[in-house]
Nucleic acid binder design. Structure first.
Lengths: 204, 204
DNA sequence: ACATCAACCGGAGAACTCTCCGTTTGGTGG
DNA sequence: CCACCAAACGGAGAGTTCTCCGGTTGATGT
C-alpha cells in the first residue's frame, strides 16, 4: 500500500533484494581488484544473480557506478543549498562555491568516475546529473553576466570536471585541487569582467 | 637506402601495402554502414588481412580513425601557420583564429571523432594532437594574459572540442558553429579582461 | 644468388558486453 | 486461500575487442 520509500512505485521485494546484492558485490569487487576494471559479468556472478538482472536494472557500467556514487552527489547538493541559504551570497560567490564544491566532489570520486566514463562517454551529456548541474550553473552565469551565452559557458565549466581530464591533471600533471580551483576562479572573474567591459562599451 | 618518405625508417613493403589496404577498407565500411560503428574485426576481413595486423599497426579504434583524419589536421595546422605569417597578428587575434579554425575542423570531422572517442576517451589527453594543441594554445594564452594559469585555461579551451560535447551541441541542442565560436570569443575576451583587471588592481 | 634475422603476418582464443526470451514469482483482487 | 499476470529472473548466445605466438617474408650484407 504505502510505497516502500526507496524507489519508484512498489519495487518488488526480490528486485530490491537483488539491487542491494548487486551494489554490494560491486563494492566488494572494486575493493578487491582495484578501480581500474569492473566486469558486469563478474559482478553478476559475485552477487549470485544472472547478468540479465544486472543489465535490466543498471543498463550499463556507468549506470551501476553512478548508483554507487549517488549518495555523495546528494550530500553535495544539500551542502550547496545550505550555503545559498546562509546570508544570501552574490551570484559570484554562489558560482564560486558551486564550482569549488564540485571540484572536491569529483576529486573524492575520481576513480569511480573514471571507471564509469571509460565506456559510453557520449551518454554523459544526456545524463540527469549533467543536465541538472548545467541548469544550475547556467542560472548563476546568467545572473553574473546577463549578456553572455550562459548555456555555452555552463557547458565549458562542466567540462572542467570530465573525469578523464580531472584525473589527468591530478595524477599525470601532479596538480592539486587548489590549482584547479584557482583556474576556475580566473574563469569566473573573466566572465564577470568581460561582461563589465561589454557593458562599458555599449554604454559609452 | 633512401627512406620511403612515408613513415618511420624503412617500413617494409608488405607493411605499407597492408596499411593502405586497411585504411581503404575502413573508408569503404564507413561509407557503407554509416559512421556509428566500425568493427576492427570487420575492417580486417574487408581488407583481407588478419586482425592482428590491424591491431599492431593502429593499436585500437581511435588509432585507426585518427589515421583517417590526419590529413585534415595537417591542413589545419598549415592554414594556421599561414595566418600567423600574414601581418603579424596579435596574440588575441591568433588565439581567436586558432579556436575558430579548430571549431571548423572538429565540425567537419564530427562523426569520425565521435566514433574515435566512443571507446578509450581517457587516452585523449595523452595523445600527440592534444599535447600539441595544448602547447600552442597555452603559448598564446600566456602572451595574452601573463598572470593567468595558461596551462589550465588551455585545458579548458581544448575541452570545448570534446567530440561528445561538440556533437551534442550541434545535434541535440541545434546550435550552429557560429554560436560556438561566439561562446569561445566571450572566453577569450574574458581571459584578456580578467588579466587587465588584475593588472589594474596590483598596480593601483 | 644466398643466408640471416628482425619485422610482419594471421587467426585461434580468452574475456567482455549486452540482448533475447522462456520460466518463475511476488503482489493483488475475489 | 487461490487464481491471475505484470514484473523480474537467469543464462545461452551473438557480436566485439584485443592478445599471443608459431609461421612466414622482405630487406640487407656478402
Amino acid at each position: 500500500m504505502t510505497a516502500p520509500a526507496g524507489r519508484a512505485p512498489t519495487e518488488r521485494a526480490d528486485a530490491a533484494r537483488n539491487r542491494l546484492r548487486v551494489l554490494e558485490a560491486a563494492r566488494r569487487l572494486l575493493a578487491a581488484d582495484g578501480f581500474t576494471e569492473l566486469s558486469l559479468d563478474a559482478v553478476a556472478k559475485e552477487a549470485g544473480v544472472g547478468v540479465g538482472t544486472v543489465y535490466r536494472r543498471f543498463h550499463n557500467r556507468p549506470g551501476l557506478v553512478y548508483a554507487l556514487i549517488e549518495d555523495n552527489e546528494t550530500r553535495f547538493q544539500e551542502a550547496f543549498t545550505r550555503h545559498c541559504a546562509d546570508g544570501a551570497p552574490s551570484a559570484h560567490d554562489r558560482l564560486r562555491a558551486f564550482l569549488h564544491g564540485m571540484a572536491e566532489l569529483v576529486d573524492d570520486n575520481r576513480e569511480l568516475l573514471l571507471l564509469a566514463e571509460a565506456s559510453a562517454p557520449a551518454g554523459r551529456y544526456r545524463s540527469a546529473p549533467f543536465r541538472r548541474h548545467h541548469e544550475q550553473i547556467a542560472g548563476m552565469v546568467t545572473e553574473l553576466a546577463p549578456g553572455a551565452d550562459a548555456a555555452y559557458l555552463a557547458d565549458l565549466l562542466l567540462m572542467a570536471y570530465t573525469p578523464g581530464l580531472f584525473d589527468f591533471q591530478r595524477t599525470e600533471r601532479g596538480w592539486d585541487v587548489d590549482r584547479i580551483k584557482g583556474g576556475l576562479d580566473v574563469l569566473i572573474d573573466g566572465i564577470g569582467a568581460a561582461e563589465e567591459a561589454d557593458r562599458r562599451l555599449s554604454h559609452q
